[in-house]
């Protein structure tokens, strides 16, 4: 059966202070997909903030899934409230959100179970436990029944084990909750592991320099083994950035190691 392709996001004529000048972007993807904007400076973060409606200072048109969608932005730094426990964090959002939530459908315990925090309902988030706090942020996002979740470089300071646990969790969540995820990242391996589409973004004036559809790429490299496929894909991405004169790739990738 052919997968239905839908347009989840269309940005046209975006202008914002020094970052974007007539920026255009379309994300057309299958249901419940994870897409990544790969970028080595702060422009992808700025874009996500604009899409997530937390930055008002811009001009242009942003259409999300026919206009009736809830978009939730998860910032780079941990943002779960440390004065509330896991359950209260989610309940606070359910009780105080201006989004018209159908409260009867929100099962807080189900959400807690889905993000892997069963048994930790009464635990308070520790500042140092980034994985735990990300799970709470994700649970709060799910509580408002979003169509798109925007994740802004949230895995930066986590150890590899936690990162991969969360990558798998995101894939599960995206499919179980019928939600698309748009991720801003500076880590090529992360983008390859998670995404259906990778959008390569150049910081200056916010320009999308290339789009890579991972399914197509895997198909082209089907004769190679998994490790070789990854290496070739990574080379392709790096080449694309270098051709477009993006200078800070090496620094950013070394930091990611």
């Amino acid at each position: 059966m052919k997968e239905e392709i839908k347009k989840i996001l269309k940005i046209s004529g975006l202008k914002s202070d020094d970052i974007f000048e007539n920026f255009n972007m379309e994300i057309e993807t299958g249901q419940n997909s994870i897409n990544c904007i790969l970028c080595f400076d702060g422009s992808a973060s700025a874009l996500l903030k604009i899409i997530g409606n937390v930055e008002d200072n811009f001009q242009g048109d942003i259409k999300i899934n026919n206009g009736n969608s809830i978009v939730v932005y998860i910032p780079t730094k941990a943002s779960s409230f440390p004065w509330l426990n896991v359950e209260e964090n989610i309940k606070f959002v359910v009780d105080n959100s201006n989004f018209h939530l159908s409260n009867s459908n929100i099962q807080i315990q189900n959400i807690i179970d889905s993000v892997g925090l069963t048994g930790y309902e009464k635990h308070f988030p520790d500042n140092r436990s980034l994985g735990f706090r990300f799970r709470i942020s994700l649970a709060r996002a799910l509580a408002v029944q979003p169509t798109i979740i925007l994740i802004d470089n949230s895995f930066n300071n986590m150890d590899d084990e936690t990162k991969f646990e969360l990558y798998d969790l995101l894939k599960e969540i995206s499919s179980n909750y019928n939600v698309s995820i748009l991720l801003a990242s500076a880590d090529i391996n992360e983008a390859i592991y998670l995404s259906e589409n990778i959008y390569l973004m150049k910081g200056e004036k916010g320009k999308i320099i290339d789009q890579i559809n991972l399914k197509e790429e895997w198909g082209k490299l089907s004769e190679e083994n998994n490790s070789n496929r990854q290496i070739k894909l990574k080379e392709k991405i790096l080449k694309s950035f270098l051709l477009n004169d993006v200078n800070n790739i090496l620094k950013s990738q070394t930091r990611g190691k």
Binding site: K49, N53, Y73, P75, S97, V144
Partner: peptide, 15 residues
């Protein structure tokens, strides 16, 4: 003040 909490809350539709 670091504004992560505020940004996240704004995005979650908190008034």
């Amino acid at each position: 003040l670091e504004n992560e909490y505020v940004i996240a809350a704004k995005s979650l539709g908190i008034n």
